[in-house]
Simulated scan of single mutants.
Amino acid sequence: MELIENQGRTEVVIAAGGLGTRRAEWSRYLPKEFYPVQGIPGIVHVLDEIAQMGCVRAAMVHHPYYEHFIHAWASRALVDSQGYARAAERPLPHGPRWPGLDLRFTAQQGPYSDITSVLNADAMLDHPHELYVAYADNLYPEDDPLLRLRDTDGGTSVIVRPYNRTEAPSRGVIVCDRGFMVDLVEKPDEFTASDLEREHGPDSLVLLEGRARTDRSFLDFLWSYRPGRAMEPKLSLALSVYARTHPVRVCPISSPVTDLGSPAP
């Protein structure tokens, strides 16, 4: 596979391929990533986080259901910093909100999964030597997880938060050893979580979050990855298989997570 050197540029996939079925009262009309948080759409917070990386090419992979919405309006509103000001006859902003960000959009092509979103972006961005992953429905208001990942020693790494039994059923639970992933259990029920605590100890467990840094070795592995019949085609489970033979670093943060896919209170 031919690789394209990034020449100081960072490549990011914004994984937005879901339909937000847990909050269908909203997401049947608009993607959950556009749900307002602190007065602005959640996706704007994600792009603010990505823009801190400097010169960035980002591919936002959305569900085909939202194709017309994305291309008729959202792509223009997110990229054209002056369009709204002209329409509202207001003073034009001095420049774009994200001057170093080259943002592209594509509908997910292939089986519905986050793996498909990553592979779609990998192809769209010409197979870079590494690709950061940002799940569009996860926000971290008290930290900058992508910058944390960039400051690691390289290789494939994932953002994690401290383990707690309450959140375990809605996240991946990682068993780690000396800062690296050893195993992962996706959304364990109460009994499985209890078994993990008893076997490994709570201090060896962390919660997988919606940011990752993937190197070319992992991306090449992902192109050939075929989960067993009993496994879902999920990026978290692919990472756990990869971690059996390759180092996957865990990068802890303490920020709470705002999950835009959770049902409204």
Results as ranks from 00 to 15, higher is better:
187 K>R: 15
243 A>E: 06
129 H>I: 03
3 L>D: 09
223 W>Q: 14
52 Q>V: 03
102 D>Q: 13
109 Q>W: 00
84 Y>L: 15
257 V>Y: 02
101 L>E: 05
82 Q>K: 06
178 R>I: 08
247 P>M: 05
103 L>G: 02
30 L>H: 13
100 G>A: 05
50 I>M: 04
200 H>L: 00
143 D>H: 13
121 A>V: 09
186 E>N: 14
69 F>Q: 10
46 V>F: 03
236 S>H: 09
142 E>M: 10
51 A>P: 00
218 F>N: 03
251 C>D: 06
231 M>W: 09
213 R>T: 06
124 M>G: 08
100 G>H: 04
18 G>T: 10
46 V>A: 15
40 I>N: 01
95 G>P: 13
183 D>N: 14
265 P>Q: 03
102 D>C: 07
195 D>H: 09
34 F>Q: 02
162 P>R: 12
76 R>H: 13
193 A>D: 08
212 A>F: 04
79 V>L: 04
9 R>S: 13
154 G>Y: 07
263 P>C: 04
209 E>S: 14
201 G>K: 11
203 D>H: 11
88 A>P: 03
72 A>L: 09
249 R>F: 02
263 P>S: 10
228 G>R: 14
211 R>K: 14
5 E>M: 13
111 P>S: 02
125 L>P: 03
82 Q>L: 05
208 L>T: 07
9 R>I: 04
184 L>W: 06
45 H>S: 06
121 A>P: 03
90 R>V: 00
71 H>P: 03
176 C>S: 15
23 R>F: 11
76 R>K: 12
20 G>F: 06
129 H>G: 04
4 I>Q: 15
194 S>P: 00
143 D>M: 05
252 P>G: 01
187 K>T: 13
177 D>N: 15
258 T>H: 10
92 L>M: 04
263 P>I: 03
137 D>G: 09
179 G>K: 05
227 P>V: 00
258 T>E: 04
208 L>I: 01
5 E>L: 12
261 G>T: 04
103 L>R: 09
227 P>T: 02
221 F>M: 01
203 D>W: 01
210 G>M: 08
119 L>K: 07
1 M>C: 12
98 W>F: 04
61 V>L: 01
230 A>R: 14
136 A>S: 15
155 G>K: 09
190 E>G: 13
232 E>Q: 15
179 G>P: 11
221 F>W: 02
